[in-house]
Simulated assay, not measured.
Amino acid sequence: MAAACGGTENSGGDGLTPAQGDCPVAPLDVVVSVDQWGDIVSQLAGACAEVTTVLAGSSVDPHDFEPAPSDAVAFEGAQLVVVNGGHYDEWATKLAETSAPDAAVVDAVDLAGAHSDDHGHEGHEGHEGDHEGRDHSINPHVWYRPDVVTAVADAVTAKLSELSGDAAGYFSERRAEFAGSMQPYDDAVATIRTGAAGKRYAAVEGVFDDMAAALGLANRTPPGYQAAADNEGEPSPADLDAFLTLLSDRGVDVLIYNVQTEGSVPEQIRAAADQAGIPVVEVTETLPPGAESFQDWQVGQLDALAEALGVGA
């Protein structure tokens, strides 16, 4: 399973140009659970919020994170809390309830549910849960859904404006600038969706599946293997063999490989793709070292995918 996120930090996203002028009011206190959203929130809030991201980096899996007393302290006094939701970071929801009970909350998975009727997963079936009771019928990696990124940005801007009405104009300007900074991302999505819709992929695990669905790619990951990966288990020998056969038969156009996923099975699958001459596109669950912003991270991966699929300028 991919490792994801570790370490509390104050975020100051680099996707936008520096805010013009000082904030017209005292900055809000905002806490974000994970850096996939922390960077976006920092860009939207600018100088009008002090944004603390609890888990930033790749040393801890948010599913398994055990918060320390210092993490609870980080939530105290928060006026806005932004969580991923969907069993991904339940610890953050609990800390918000106990340490910041009056804070406004934006939950990305809740927002994703409002769009789920129009968001299909070809070749992907939900799995009801695992031995720890996690619901895997919803892919929690919703930062890989372009519609949810937009919905979260809108919801965060709305909450910031409600909490600090005198800065509403400032937040509106930040939201517009964020939209402009997302244009390369939007263009990359449109390019792949136009030029590669229907092309086939398989993945060592499902972090990128929502983006693949948005791009119109067909998921050919063997169902048994995908069920095991979604439930953080080991695939059966038969399921692994089905995956290796799929690759040797060149049954997909690209393999999506999360480099934060460790183990001999993913390595074996990648080696089989290399041997079959199938392009491998590397993705990550969290912002990788060196990424300047959410946009920089995502566009880099999308450009690599477009090249692998033979589309683009």
Rank of each mutant, 00 (worst) to 15 (best):
T194E: 15
A103Y: 10
P101K: 13
E97Q: 15
F75I: 04
P235N: 02
D187V: 05
S59M: 06
G206C: 03
V207K: 09
S58W: 05
V280T: 13
D241I: 00
D274F: 00
A304W: 01
V254C: 08
A272M: 02
S293V: 06
D274Y: 01
A304L: 01
A313V: 11
E173T: 15
V207Q: 11
S172G: 15
V189Y: 09
E205D: 04
E50L: 07
D186M: 07
G133L: 09
C23P: 07
L246Y: 09
E232A: 13
A47L: 10
D303L: 03
A72D: 04
L215S: 06
N10G: 14
P18L: 07
V81M: 08
L240V: 04
S248E: 15
P24W: 03
D118Q: 14
F65E: 05
L28Q: 11
A74K: 13
E97K: 15
D230S: 11
L160P: 00
E9D: 10
V265N: 02
V83W: 04
F65L: 03
E50R: 15
T93N: 08
G21M: 08
L95Q: 03
A212W: 05
D253C: 11
A190V: 05
P235A: 02
I269M: 04
D230R: 12
A176P: 02
A151S: 12
N258E: 07
A72F: 10
V142Y: 02
L309F: 07
H121C: 10
T150N: 09
D14N: 14
D117F: 05
P18G: 10
D117P: 02
S181L: 00
V25C: 11
V83L: 14
K199V: 07
R174T: 09
A213R: 07
G126F: 08
G123L: 06
A158F: 02
T150Y: 00
A227H: 05
N258V: 12
G180D: 12
A49W: 03
E205R: 13
V106A: 11
L255K: 13
I40W: 02
P279A: 05
A242T: 08
Q275C: 01
F294M: 06
G312A: 09
A96C: 07
K94R: 15
D22L: 05
Q295V: 14
L28G: 06
G113Q: 13
A229C: 00
Y170G: 09
Y225H: 02
T93F: 07
R134E: 08
A49F: 04
L217S: 04
L28H: 01
G300W: 00
G216H: 05
A168W: 00
P237M: 01
S161V: 03
R175V: 01
A227I: 01
